[in-house]
């Protein structure tokens, strides 16, 4: 998709020299996967998707994404387990994207190593902002923590 400059009235942080960062979108609801992917692709991200926890771990191994958008309630392997397993071998940023609004769940996920937590329903601008913020922080702070290369 084409990379277009931010010219709207909504403040979308602009990321310079957007390389093709790869984002893994994990959700069992195909509609969510569809519009989140479309939004990311149109803004120049490389998107891979998974519809459950096991597929997510497989995609993670295969594609080495720069960031993971992770749903929690999924068949086969839930988001909690996926997060826990990924943290055993990777520090890849994880943004939890879930309908569970409880503070306790949020705290649990953040203490398990998730980087951010977004409650459904969400504004796509909010998601994009957080994705960009995390990527920017990572690129400016270096990639010393990364161990997945």
């Amino acid at each position: 998709m084409n990379e277009s400059p931010a010219n709207g009235d909504r403040p979308v942080p602009k990321v310079k020299k957007m390389s093709k960062e790869r984002i893994l979108v994990v959700d069992d609801d195909p509609v969510i996967v569809k519009f989140v992917s479309a939004n990311l692709k149109v803004r120049g991200f490389d998107v891979i998707t998974a519809e459950d926890g096991e597929a997510a771990l497989a995609a993670m191994e295969k594609s080495n994404p720069s960031i993971i958008l992770l749903d929690l309630l999924m068949p086969r392997l839930d988001g909690f387990e996926v997060c826990r397993r990924i943290r055993q071998f990777s520090t890849v940023p994880i943004i939890v994207l879930t309908a569970i609004g409880e503070a306790s769940t949020k705290f649990e996920l953040l203490s398990m190593g998730a980087d951010d937590y977004i409650t459904k329903p969400f504004d796509i601008a909010d998601l994009l902002t957080r994705v960009r913020a995390i990527l920017q922080a990572r690129s400016s702070g270096g990639c010393s923590a990364r161990s997945d290369s």
Binding site: R10, V31, I32, F35, A99, K120, P121, F122, D123
Partner: peptide, 25 residues
């Protein structure tokens, strides 16, 4: 609330996607 959230998430997500002015669909 969880059941209602699922379609609402899609509606909110798509509506907010279409509102974004930085891209032309």
């Amino acid at each position: 609330s969880h059941e209602l959230r699922t379609p609402l998430t899609s509606i909110k997500g798509i509506a907010s996607t279409l509102v974004q002015s930085d891209v032309k669909w």
